[in-house]
Amino acid sequence: MGFRRLIAPLASIVGLSLIVIVVFLGIYAWPAVKFNGWHFLIRNNWNLGNLYGNPIMRHGQQVMPGAAYGILFLIVGTLLSTLIAVLIAVPFGVGAAMFLAEGIPPVLRPWLSFFVELLAAIPSVVFGLWGYVLLIPFLSHHVFPFMAKRFGFIPFFKGSTGSGYGLLTCGLVLSLMIVPLIAATVRDALVSRPIGQREAALALGATRFETLWAVELPGVRRVIIASTILATGRALGETMAVLMVSGNALNYLPNNIYTPISTMASFIVSQLDSALEDPTGMAVRSLAEVALVLCAISIVVNGIARLLLYFSGQERMEAGAWM
């Protein structure tokens, strides 16, 4: 009993740090929450106001004249880029996992699986570098004009393709970052399925692919769902790669898939310097409110995924520590 009492406080630091993050961000952002109200989430005007004027009192808070903070464009940008990323990443992740688990010669399997797991460790700023140096010129010169011309009949595919910085580029880079996570997790789940079901299906005359598709894949349905949700959380909070390829639009709703956007996470990095110009501090507090909203979204997303896993009886997956 003594030992347990001894390490419990130390262990609690892990849980407390999450609570402390939420509470302190909340306290810091509270004046902004009161000043902005619900308009924060549904308006599209991030405006620091006249920074050379004298501060005025509004809603009981001291702000610069004309200041208003609405982040609808951030919420839209974050959700759309994540949606694109997940729509691309799930089929690719599951397909790659199937190929890794059954498709390649057994000799190569550990090596290629190892390769995919290592890819999950590549830092996001390196993905950003790749997107900035190689992907954006390639997309803006070759792919986007072609897509706008040939696939213009699909909604949001038509129109100006811009400079290559934007929603679709963002989605592509994000999907590349989360595909290894989904692929590694689903592969591990596929490999650890009981062999009996597979043998039964094979004995009935099913081919290896039919077994994989109709027997194994439905068996790991929950893992696919949970890893998708967790990967969604990753994409929602991704900062550096998005910062380098999104175009960092301000107060701007996308009108096609090539439009520059900002996400909540990248906006915090790109705007803190200018927010510090606001002598009342309301801009910095509003950025804290952005961080708070982002934190809340990621807590909800991750919480749902965790509860899904706990209650599905799937003890925590041991597929890499990112889970």
Partner: peptide
């Protein structure tokens, strides 16, 4: 849940 909190937060 802390694993999933974005690093920028």
């Amino acid at each position: 849940v802390l694993v999933g909190v974005p690093s920028i937060v």
